[in-house]
């Protein structure tokens, strides 16, 4: 399969991730959408790496992205739990203390 097929998959995954973040009224979905977007980015990294001489750089970046994703997930989950504790809700729109 050519590079374009992978990029197309990555693009569609990215689009679905954005919809997941924006359309659902739940912080967990926001988290999951972010994971999708990161995965889409990873597919691109690895695919371009593969089709551009297989010089390891893309793969290394993918690994760093995975590491950051893991850290982000842990912190985000802590935030979600704290938000729920404070606002009795995990709707992103309800955490609006900083508004105005």
């Amino acid at each position: 399969m050519g590079l374009g097929a992978y990029i197309a998959v990555s693009a569609v995954l990215f689009a679905i991730g954005v919809v997941c973040i924006v359309a659902r009224r739940n912080m967990i979905y926001v988290l999951m959408g972010i994971e999708m977007i990161l995965n889409a980015a990873n597919i691109n990294f690895v695919a371009f790496n593969r089709f551009n001489g297989d010089a390891m750089d893309g793969r290394m970046f993918a690994i760093f992205v995975i590491i950051l994703a893991a850290a982000e997930a842990a912190v985000a989950l802590g935030i979600v739990l704290n938000v729920y504790h404070l606002f009795e809700s995990i709707k992103p729109g309800d955490a609006d203390l900083m508004r105005d």
Binding site: M1, I43, V46, R50, R59
Partner: peptide, 11 residues
Amino acid sequence: GLFLLLGADFL
């Protein structure tokens, strides 16, 4: 699976 197809086994 896509990573496998791209030859990145470890990833």
